[in-house]
């Protein structure tokens, strides 16, 4: 039961020196009610992908290929990329809401938190009375752990954690089926981060929305996600359940990411980062974009582009996919 199907999506940034492929041939499914983690380094295209799905790209970014199909609860399908202006306006927030990276910047500084919830309701539920709107705003704020009297607070009067909670409350206003969370906890300290993650999980249980959770922090994703997709240089290089990815990562890049942070428990092991720097999207290396940084690369890696194929992680009932030429397309075979 997919709620969102992304197929062969490509996004280019058009510039004087030619197009930069920020997102290339991305196909992803989001199932109803699941938390899909999207991980990758800065510049890997994860935020661009999210903005493309929400139709929030601005020039010079443009969708060049592919489709995004949204399935309503009643079974009807919507081609998101083909929505006209008014349809798009109705689709937004009612079906798909977004929580942006920094709540400090995503809340309007001159408007109260309550007013920012209410203006969503005023547009999308015009029949709601003024009183109902403010009651709903209070209800939503309380649901994310903000007291009712904070409805009249301005964003600058709230702490970082509270602002992020408020942003989540705004996202919940119309009970959307999908919420895209673009690094929602990156700017917060670890303790607040944990609280927010628990809150998101609890809300998901209660309301049943699906989440696309974007972050560069893979360990955090392992904790919160049902499934994870790893992006590198604009392409998805590996997908799988959080557990499978954690246990048996197939792509050397995933393995590198997993080995780049220390464990608190278990035997000590050497921390291995990923050598080199993320590639320049304007001039990607031929073949697999990761091969210059890959310790296992063979000659073929620099000539042939590996495609995402169902890998060994898929055989045990989950649907892991990997884009790696090693071992006949099955990726690395060692545990993290």
């Amino acid at each position: 039961m997919n709620v969102l199907e992304i197929r062969d999506l490509g996004v280019d940034y058009l510039s004087q020196s030619g197009a930069v492929h920020a997102v290339a041939d991305v196909s992803l499914d989001l199932r109803r009610g699941e938390i899909l983690g999207l991980a990758g380094e800065s510049g890997s295209g994860k935020s661009t992908l999210a903005n493309a799905v929400a139709r929030l790209l601005r020039p010079p970014a443009a969708i060049t290929s592919g489709s995004v199909v949204y399935h309503r609860q009643d079974g009807t399908a919507v081609d998101v990329l083909a929505l006209k202006r008014d349809e798009l306006r109705a689709f937004r927030w009612k079906e798909l809401a977004v929580v942006f990276q920094s709540a400090m910047n995503s809340l309007n500084p001159v408007s109260t938190v309550g007013a920012q919830i209410e203006d969503v309701l005023r547009i999308h539920a015009p029949k709601m009375s003024r009183n109902d709107r403010s009651e709903r705003a209070v209800e939503l704020l309380q649901r994310v752990g903000i007291s009712a009297d904070r409805r009249r607070s301005y964003p600058h009067e709230l702490s970082g954690g509270m602002r992020q909670r408020a942003a989540i409350a705004i996202a919940l206003a119309l009970n959307p089926e999908v919420i895209i969370m673009d690094e929602p906890t990156t700017a917060l300290d670890v303790v607040v981060q944990r609280d927010i993650l628990h809150e998101i999980r609890a809300l998901r249980e209660e309301y049943g929305f699906a989440v696309v959770f974007i972050t560069h922090d893979l360990s955090l994703l392992m904790e919160i996600s049902d499934r994870i997709a790893i992006m590198y240089a604009g392409r998805v290089v590996e997908t799988g359940t959080a557990e499978a990815l954690h246990r048996t990562p197939r792509h050397p890049y995933t393995l590198g990411l997993l080995r780049s942070f220390p464990r608190l428990h278990g035997p000590r092991e050497e921390l291995l980062g990923i050598p080199g720097t993320p590639p320049d999207l304007r001039s990607l290396p031929p073949g697999c974009a990761f091969h210059p940084r890959c310790g296992r690369a063979v000659e073929e890696c620099s000539t042939r582009l590996p495609l995402l194929t169902r890998g060994p992680n898929g055989s045990d009932g989950s649907d892991g996919e990997v884009a790696c030429l090693l071992n006949g397309g099955r990726g690395v075979e060692e545990t993290s």
Binding site: R92, A97, F100, S102, N108, I123, H124
Partner: peptide, 12 residues
């Protein structure tokens, strides 16, 4: 970001 978010909210 808040302008992008306002747009994402489906406001006119």
């Amino acid at each position: 970001d808040y302008v992008v978010m306002a747009e994402a909210k489906g406001l006119t």
